Simulated scan of single mutants.
Amino acid sequence: MNNPAIQNLVISLGVMQLARKIPFEDPNVLLYVRIGYAGVQVVVLALYYYISMRIKSQNDQTVLKYCLELTVGAVVEPPNPMTQEEGKLVTTTVRDYDLGEVSKLLRSVYMGVAMMAFLHGYMKYTQPLFVQAIMGFKGLFDAVPVKVHILGHKAEGDLKRPWKAAGGMFGGAGAPQTDNAAITEAEKRVGGSNKKED
């Protein structure tokens, strides 16, 4: 049960069963659920913005690399399995990488709020408000930037940068390749493509 997608599914199903027992037709109950949902979204957004401010204030300009002994480091992003393209070489700093990851989390919150506005505001569904309020808090505890920048976990082991993308229901999310052989091969490809363009 270590797969976050399966955990989210199990928790969602459990919360939906609990939501069936809530009398959403009562205007007072519905008001509290709306306030709860909005409150969770405000807390989540505020925490992500706070993490962004912390990352900017720390201004960690360390080059993202596989081995600490290296003076220049890089990450090879996994290729898209649906295309024939090869992975591209990415060199960045810890600051920029972390800000990019927090930006992805913020976008997912905005998308969730937009979807909920449609489902509740237009389609008049009420149970998803309750479910998404609970899942919003669970998402905070699953977010790696929260673990590293708020909970104080060291960026090592499973939390070592670059962070693995959350897998789907059956896994399969490709992890960036950070070994020296993959980086050297990607650098050769980049060097070769630059020579072709000259």
Rank of each mutant, 00 (worst) to 15 (best):
V63C: 06
K56H: 09
N80A: 06
H153Y: 12
A175Y: 07
G167E: 09
M16K: 10
T62H: 09
G157K: 05
Q41A: 10
E69C: 15
E187T: 12
D60K: 00
N2D: 13
V109N: 00
L159D: 06
K147I: 00
L105D: 04
A117C: 08
M135T: 03
V109P: 03
R161Q: 08
L64V: 03
A166T: 13
Q61G: 07
Y66T: 15
A175F: 05
H153G: 04
Q177S: 13
M116L: 13
N2K: 13
S52M: 12
G167H: 06
Q132S: 13
P81F: 00
G157E: 01
K56M: 10
I55C: 01
Q127M: 10
L151A: 10
F137W: 11
N28E: 15
A182M: 04
Q84D: 13
E77V: 15
N8L: 14
R95K: 13
M135A: 06
L89D: 01
F170V: 07
G136S: 03
V144R: 00
M111W: 10
S103Q: 11
R34L: 05
D96I: 00
I55D: 00
C67S: 15
H149C: 05
A114K: 05
V40P: 09
L45V: 14
D179E: 07
S12W: 09
R95V: 10
L99E: 02
L106V: 12
M123P: 06
E185S: 07
Y32W: 11
L129N: 02
L47Y: 02
P145F: 00
T126N: 08
K88W: 09
K164S: 11
K138R: 11
A19T: 07
V42L: 14
D26R: 05
G73A: 05
T83I: 03
M115T: 13
M111S: 14
G152I: 03
N28D: 12
